[in-house]
Design a binder for these strands. Structure first.
Length: 257
DNA sequence: AAAATTTACAACCGCGGGATA
DNA sequence: GTATCCCGCGGTTGTAAATTT
């Protein structure tokens, strides 16, 4: 006894999506909205027959995809408002800080970065930031009093799922991405992508989003001891529970801070 | 120029929680 | 109360593109 598999592995398209598949999926969702992913491929095929009969007469293959695959494609790629590439220094900074607080809870982190998906942030972390953080941590430990490092490994330390980011250095000085605070250098891999130039920090949409409009990114962490300059101690259990509760259930989470 | 290696990221997979029949 | 569905999450894989040898 068990649940039925999402879809059979045979006779289902896998791998990269074609333009036709994207178009079909987008058309369907624009007309019928999101949800019911499991049934979508079948309904989309029906929709196809109704609305695209003439165009598809020559090559009518329907949307032969698993519902989960449809959802993933829509959520991570086709959905309106998705930003791609060019993760700004501000965004990178915020990702690092949120990861410091939340660990690998990508969906929560993505929720604070408009237009970014959990998958994109996860990939960005795994391919770039995790390595950067490892380098930063090793540099820090080399130059730091080892006793203070051991101090952080006490029983009271709350360790979320994050396994790679155990210590980082940040600055509360707005726009200060100097070497001191280990924030991104002026040239990051994303900078090399084609596309429009990066926005300056003050123009970045992040600062205009509802959560940050009044206080800015830095302000979120104001009056907390989480981002002390050179020495970031782990959160207490109480702090961690309060924070995670606030993040998950209270959209106006900045009030907590 | 070609082969080998690395990087970046889209997509897959299994699982868990909540909803529903 | 139980089985199943639906959805979303996070870890992992596959592979094209870029880089190095």
């Amino acid at each position: 006894m068990g649940r039925k598999p999402c879809c059979g592995k045979e006779g289902v398209n896998r791998g990269a999506w074609s333009l036709k598949e994207d178009e079909l999926l987008s058309n369907y969702i624009q007309l019928h909205g999101e949800g019911k992913w499991r049934n979508l491929p079948h309904k989309a095929a029906f929709f196809l027959l109704l609305h695209l009969l003439v165009f598809m007469a020559k090559n009518n293959q329907g949307l032969n995809r698993c519902g989960k695959s449809c959802r993933l494609r829509w959520m991570n790629y086709l959905r309106p408002g998705i930003k791609r590439g060019n993760i700004s220094p501000d965004e990178q900074d915020l990702i690092i800080r949120l990861h410091r607080l939340l660990g690998n809870r990508w969906s929560l982190i993505a929720g604070r970065l408009p237009g970014r998906t959990d998958n994109e942030i996860k990939n960005y972390w795994n391919t770039f930031l995790s390595k950067k953080m490892q380098v930063d941590v090793s540099k820090t430990i080399e130059s730091e009093d080892k006793k203070s490092v051991r101090k952080y490994k006490s029983d009271k330390m709350i360790v979320p799922k994050a396994t790679r980011c155990t210590k980082m250095l940040v600055s509360l000085d707005e726009g200060d991405h100097s070497e001191k605070n280990q924030c991104p250098p002026s040239s990051t891999p994303s900078d090399t992508n084609d596309g429009p130039p990066l926005e300056s920090p003050k123009e970045n949409h992040l600062l205009n989003m509802p959560y940050f409009s009044d206080i800015g990114i830095e302000g979120i962490f104001e009056n907390t001891n989480m981002l002390e300059t050179d020495d970031v101690a782990p959160m207490s259990e109480m702090e961690f529970h309060n924070l995670t509760y606030s993040l998950e259930f209270d959209d106006d989470w900045t009030n907590f801070l």
